[in-house]
C-alpha cells in the first residue's frame, strides 16, 4: 500500500472510463450528427445571407452588453454571498440562482409580467414613455436574467476557495474595505471572474426561450441567432443546420480562447 509510483499514478478507477466515455458521447455525438448534415457546398452562401449576418451581429452585440451587466451586477452579488455575514444567506443564494433552474420560457413570462406593458414595473415605465417590449433592451434584459447566476456561481466559488487571510492582513494594515477589494480580493479571484464572464457570455449567446417569450422576433432588433435558427428550421433546414454550426464554432471559440487567458491570469 505504501508503494509509490512517481508516474502513471491515478486516483481514477479504471471502470470510471466507461461511463465517462458514454457521457462524452452524449455530448459529442449530436454535434457530429449535425456536422454530417451540413451542406458543404452551399455553406458559405447559407451563413452569409443578410438575415444570418444581421442575427449573428445582433447576438454578439447583445451578449457583450449583457455580459458586462452580469459582471457589474454579479460581482457585488457574489461578494455579498461569499463574504458578508448576513442572516438568510442560504435563501438569498437560492433566489439568486433561480434563473439557473427555471426553464427560460418561465423566465420570459416572469420578465413579461414585470417589464412588459402591463407589468409590475413596466406600467410605470410606460407612463414615463419608456417601452421595453419588442426592443433590443428586452433581449439584453432576458440574457442578463438567465446568465447572471453563471457569473455569481463561478465568482462565489472562487471567493470561497481564495483564502480570506490576505484580505484580513490588508485590513489590519489599515486598508479600507474598498482598497482591500480593489487591491487584494479582485486580483485574487480574477480567474474565477474571467471564467464566470465567459460562461455568462456563452449563455447569453444561446438564450432563446426568454427572448422569444419576452422580446419577440424581428430582424435586426430582437431576432438573435438562436431565434433565426428556429425560424429557418421551418423553411430552410439546410440554412438552420449551417447557422447552428456557426453558433457551435463561436461557442467553442469563446470557451477555448478564454482558457489560456484564464490560466495566465491565474498564474499571476
Amino acid at each position: 500500500m505504501t508503494r509509490r509510483r512517481p508516474r502513471g499514478f491515478s486516483t481514477v478507477p479504471g471502470w470510471v472510463w466507461i461511463p465517462a466515455a458514454l457521457g462524452a458521447l452524449v455530448v459529442v455525438l449530436p454535434v457530429l450528427g449535425m456536422l454530417a448534415r451540413v451542406d458543404r457546398d452551399g455553406f458559405l452562401g447559407l451563413i452569409t445571407s443578410e438575415s444570418s449576418r444581421t442575427a449573428l451581429w445582433l447576438s454578439l452585440r447583445t451578449a457583450t452588453v449583457s455580459t458586462a451587466l452580469c459582471v457589474l451586477l454579479g460581482t457585488p452579488m457574489a461578494l455579498v454571498l461569499a463574504r458578508a455575514r448576513l442572516p438568510g444567506a442560504r435563501l438569498l443564494r437560492s433566489l439568486a440562482l433561480l434563473p439557473l433552474v427555471l426553464p427560460p420560457v418561465v423566465g420570459g413570462i416572469a420578465l413579461l409580467h414585470t417589464f412588459g406593458r402591463y407589468g409590475l414595473v413596466g406600467r410605470y415605465l410606460e407612463l414615463a414613455g419608456i417601452s421595453i417590449a419588442f426592443t433590443t433592451v428586452a433581449v439584453v434584459l432576458a440574457q442578463t436574467f438567465v446568465a447572471l447566476p453563471f457569473l455569481v456561481v463561478s465568482l462565489e466559488g472562487a471567493l470561497r476557495s481564495a483564502a480570506a487571510g490576505y484580505e484580513e492582513v490588508a485590513a489590519t494594515l489599515g486598508a479600507r474595505p474598498t482598497t482591500v477589494l480593489r487591491r487584494v480580493t479582485l486580483p485574487l479571484v480574477l480567474p474565477g471572474l474571467a471564467s464566470g464572464a465567459v460562461l455568462s457570455f456563452a449563455r447569453c449567446l444561446g438564450e432563446f426561450g426568454a427572448t422569444l417569450t419576452f422580446a419577440g422576433s424581428l430582424q435586426g432588433t430582437t431576432r438573435t441567432l438562436p431565434l433565426e435558427i428556429y425560424l429557418l428550421r421551418e423553411t430552410d433546414p439546410d440554412a438552420a443546420v449551417a447557422l447552428s454550426l456557426v453558433l457551435v464554432v463561436v461557442a467553442v471559440l469563446v470557451v477555448g480562447l478564454s482558457a489560456p487567458v484564464r490560466r495566465t491570469v491565474g498564474r499571476r
Binding site: G116, R117, A215, G216, S217, L218, T222
Partner: peptide, 21 residues
C-alpha cells in the same frame, strides 16, 4: 411594420392576449 414576426400563430395570439401588442 410589425414589432415582431412570430414563428407561430399562437405566438401572435399570446402577445395580443397579454396586451404586449
Amino acid at each position: 411594420s410589425p414589432v415582431s414576426e412570430e414563428g407561430s400563430v399562437t405566438g401572435v395570439l399570446g402577445k395580443v392576449v397579454s396586451g404586449q401588442a
